[in-house]
Design a protein around this nucleic acid. Structure first.
Lengths: 204, 204, 204, 204
DNA sequence: CGCTAACCGAGACGGTACGTCCCGTCTTTAC
DNA sequence: GTAAAGACGGGACGTACCGTCTCGGTTAGCG
């Protein structure tokens, strides 16, 4: 979690097990928040509306998250897993392809995508959000760099490829398109993109 | 202009010259708005704060712009010129280098840079801002694409380079670094970046 | 109440008891409003100033009254009781004396007195205030008329006395002095006044 | 004048004759002000509206009067004459009758009447307005007192009549009715009123 | 009859209050 | 004892006028 939510972090001794209603509320609220985000977007996202949608009092939300941004960030955390789910052992090129395509798909269309601008802006103002956002992006980038590195070592990609720079251009192109133009990057073109940066497949 | 402001549009005959105070107010307010945007971001951007910063009454702002968004959009318009100032006739590679470096420098540090997150967030929330932001980015991209295309035609870059994709990766890398990590893209590395995407200089 | 406030009208079943903060806020605000009215008058009466004076947020006022006028009208309602508190069974002359003196005293000096000009001005501008102001004055006048009538019937006052006209002159003199000259009508002279209008006491 | 208008009070020596435009503007504005007052009442009286009605710039009004109240008071001054126009030498009773009826008529319906509340309120807050309002009322009262006094001296009214108290009740009744009820005092009843206070006509 | 001073209309300006909306906090009551 | 309901203080929104001010353009009346 980003911080901002306040689970019984500091061992409130006397409480053995957590009231089951608490987890129920959290789940309801998180779900409502994600729905709200998807439907009205970040701009019109309102705590009061989330509360209404979740059938919950406003105070219940503030009991579990410090503010709007914390709720959003936490709700997004949910997606974290779904973003590194390709731990297969295909060949490097294949793995890069899948990774890039996966990112492109998520960026092209998902609740997560709708929140990217908010995260960027939030990161600019709030250290907590920044930490979360950067760490998150770094993990994503790291895994891509590693795969590219492996490919270079294995000779699948040209030797002069700088993995870090390559990862930057691959991800950059996808996010840039999403943030700077009407249309997101088409996932179907991810193969092309990889080819442009790492060289065409020298298929026999 | 993006819209929202109400200048002397459409030559209203009877008004010969404009009251000089008007332009002065507009200038002060625009400047204050950009500063505000850079400092507090889109979400916390406040007309009242802009008015205070500009040393102007709130009503003066509403006299010239219909609402907050119109002011933001118009204030950002200000940057339009400063960002396409490289109309030289060097060789294509050199021109790409300079263009990319120029973008990197601006993104690394400038008043404009401070507004990028606000701009992205604003584009997501408001159609007016979006229109401006996208058009603006498109122009920037367009000029880079043209130069790359010329280079490909001339044989300075590999034939298989897709100019549009290449531009996307070049710019993407720069913005991605700025928005997704602690450090902006170092302008000194723009040569490397161009090399990675368009091939190393095949110098003698 | 005059209207404008929105109390538990129409027995909304599910709400048993009212939040005690509500009544507390209402009381504080009403008091502040009356003070404000007395001090700055109707024209300069400001919701924001009332809020500050009551140590309350502006929104709390708007939560309980629809607008400025509703608040003013309701706040003035407060005085209603304090002004007809002489239901004794003395002789008619005595009762008239006391009633007139009571009015003179209130008009000479009281929180209410400070509001009379505001009330008059308000009545001229706003139908709601007017309704209240007139109804209120009518009740006051009515009770005086009744007592005079009783006195005439009983032979304590000359037969040709027109009770309604007499009440008008008695009250009129008091208010006229307050509103049209530096000094209010001296309550000590109320006996004289009654004598002038209803004839001297034909004591043995 | 109440004060507030600023004619060439302090003998600006070099100016022989006044620019005729000035007087013209003053006249237009005064007239517009009175019309406005009559039509929309004091509450909705707006300087901007008066300016428009007079076909004059707002600044022209403020050039000649300090503020709204000064303009209104000055416009009312116009009526001052029409309020003491009964300098005949009838019998005292007749003169009182006419005076009272005249006041009743003015109070019952005139532009002046519409401003009484504003004057009362203004007098409460602004010393200048107070001075004007009180002096004005005093003159009116004085003339009535004098006539009554003459009548008492001449034996037309009972000896025990206190002229000052009598005047207070006569005027008070008329103003009270105007300010405290829906209907103003009916001028037709002024004879009755005088009779009630000064005794019936002991006609043969 | 042409020049210059002033007055003028127009309206921009800094302000202030309006009544609305939503935030994030805090209190109360019901379950 | 917890959670819903929702009152609360706060503060920005965009609007309407206020009373002040600056701007050129027009007009009166002197020379």
């Amino acid at each position: 979690m980003v911080g901002g939510d306040k689970p019984n972090a500091g061992l409130r001794a006397p409480k053995k097990t957590e009231d089951p209603r608490i987890e129920r509320s959290r789940r309801l609220i998180r779900r409502a928040a994600v729905q709200e985000l998807g439907e009205v977007g970040y701009g019109a996202f309102t705590i009061e509306s989330v509360a209404a949608r979740a059938g919950v009092g406003k105070s219940t939300i503030y009991r579990h998250w410090t503010d709007k941004l914390a709720l959003i960030a936490d709700a997004l955390e949910t997606f974290h897993e779904e973003l590194v789910p390709d731990l297969e052992d295909a060949q490097p090129r294949e793995r890069v392809d899948r990774l890039v395509r996966h990112v492109a798909e998520i960026v092209a269309d998902s609740t997560f995508s709708a929140c990217i601008p908010a995260l960027i802006e939030g990161a600019e103002r709030d250290p907590q959000v920044r930490e979360f956002h950067h760490r998150y992006a770094a993990e994503r980038r790291e895994s891509l760099i590693n795969v590219i590195q492996a490919g270079v070592a294995k000779g699948d990609f040209p030797a002069q490829v700088d993995p870090e720079l390559a990862a930057l251009t691959l991800l950059g192109a996808i996010f840039y398109k999403r943030l700077m133009s009407r249309e997101p990057f088409d996932p179907e073109r991810s193969g092309e993109l990889v080819g442009a940066v790492l060289g065409r497949q020298q298929t026999a």
